[in-house]
Simulated scan of single mutants.
Amino acid sequence: MEPLTPSTRILQIIAGHWLSCSVYVAAKLNIAELLANGPQTVEALAAASGSHAPSLYRLLRALAAEGIFEETSKGVFSITPAATALQEDAPGNVKAFVLALLGEHYHGWGELLYSVQTGGIAFDHHFGTDIWSWYRSHPAEGLNFMKAMTAMTQYVDKAIIAAYDFSGFNTIVDVGGGNGALLMAILKATPAATGIVYDAPYVIEKTAEAIAANGLTNRCGVKGGDFFKSVPPGADAYIMKYILHDWYEEDAIRLLRNCSEVMKPGDKLLAFDAVIPEGNGPHPGKLFDITMLVATGGRERTAQEFQYLFEQAGLQFNRVIPLALPDVSIVEGEKL
């Protein structure tokens, strides 16, 4: 196969943008769910999804050309393995992630030029408020975003547990732990440990229910609060997954310092984030870093940048532990 010309390479990237927008519309219209019980005509799909049938046909024809849905006869479409990833109840689905990243986050990407020219947050510029306040005032989208993070990190949780021995800890506080999925997975793998999921009160409203459903009420509690003001004391391990990358240096240091102030010598702090390698090679964190630029003002960081944050907060930077997944590593720090 001949190498791509420079122009063809750029045009392929643009076509990927068109395709991702098409996937978003199919997810928003619940097409994969509507096809769960068998093929349907485009007219039936349009009626059920509130769509314009001729236009929906054009969308599904384009997606079928990419293996997302299949046109089994003229105007009749069926599900494909790829399309099951857009079914909300399918194991390992990414529907919530698609709806978030190509929904509200899409507007931030559309203002990327603003962020690059000014250093400001494109999401805030577009909506007139920061992303966390926006989610508080749009609870349905906020719940979907939480589902998206849960779905996209279930494999990360498994990789974390496989790569790190948590058995030496008595109590683990998951700072910004959301619905508690990571901490519950750790506790299931570490029967002697207990834990606390710590997050904003509106976030953890349903976390206690999830903990009870997993049979961990006696070993795992919840606590609401603002981690920029304080974190619960009394643990020997503090963990945070995809938290530090949300914040500017000053805020990240403040959060780490709040942890450091309640830690005892020998206690560990574990951050689970992308760690950007040096050089020009591809790495998922390099594009996630642009997501942070436009959405939160945070950033993905190199090992040296993590070391700076930890030391500024009064913690020793110990090591970076790569995981089987390239988009996240374990950054370990310790209170001296």
Rank of each mutant, 00 (worst) to 15 (best):
G281H: 12
A313E: 04
G266I: 15
K264F: 06
N318R: 10
L309E: 04
F288D: 15
L270P: 01
Q304E: 13
D267W: 06
M292S: 05
M292C: 08
T291R: 13
F272N: 11
G285Q: 06
F288K: 09
L315C: 00
G279A: 10
P265N: 05
Y308R: 15
P284S: 13
H283F: 08
P282S: 12
K264A: 06
D267Y: 08
D273C: 09
I321P: 05
F317P: 03
L269K: 06
I290W: 09
G285R: 03
L309Q: 01
V294G: 03
P277Q: 06
Q312S: 13
N318P: 00
E305K: 06
D289I: 07
P282I: 02
G281L: 10
V294N: 06
D289H: 15
A274P: 06
F288G: 14
A313P: 04
N318W: 00
G285A: 04
H283S: 11
F310N: 03
F288N: 15
N318Y: 00
I321K: 07
D273G: 06
Q316Y: 07
P265Q: 01
F306K: 02
E305Q: 14
V275D: 09
R299V: 11
V275R: 01
M263H: 05
T291I: 09
F288H: 14
E311G: 08
L270T: 01
F317A: 03
T302G: 01
A295L: 13
Q307F: 01
P282C: 11
R301Y: 02
L269F: 11
L270I: 13
R299C: 11
E300N: 00
G266K: 14
A274D: 12
D273Y: 05
Q316P: 00
E278N: 06
L287G: 12
L287S: 13
T302V: 02
L269M: 12
M292G: 04
I321V: 14
L270K: 04
A274E: 10
A295D: 14
I321E: 11
F306A: 08
F272S: 12
Q304D: 12
I276K: 14
G279F: 10
G281Q: 15
R299N: 10
G314R: 10
G281A: 15
F317H: 07
K268W: 12
V275G: 06
N280L: 11
R319H: 09
E305N: 05
E300M: 00
A303G: 03
G281T: 14
F288I: 14
L269D: 00
T296G: 07
F288L: 15
Q304P: 02
Y308M: 14
D273H: 05
H283M: 09
I290V: 15
A295V: 08
Q312L: 09
K268C: 12
F310T: 03
G281K: 13
L293V: 12
G285I: 03
P265T: 00
F306M: 04
E278W: 02
A274R: 02
E278D: 11
T302W: 07
G285N: 06
G314I: 02
L269V: 13
P265A: 01
T296W: 05
R301A: 00
V294A: 05
R301S: 01
I321R: 05
G281W: 05
G297E: 05
L315I: 01
G298D: 00
Q312D: 04
M263I: 05
I321C: 11
I276L: 15
L269S: 06
K286H: 12
F310I: 02
L309W: 01
T291Y: 14
L293I: 12
E311R: 04
F306L: 04
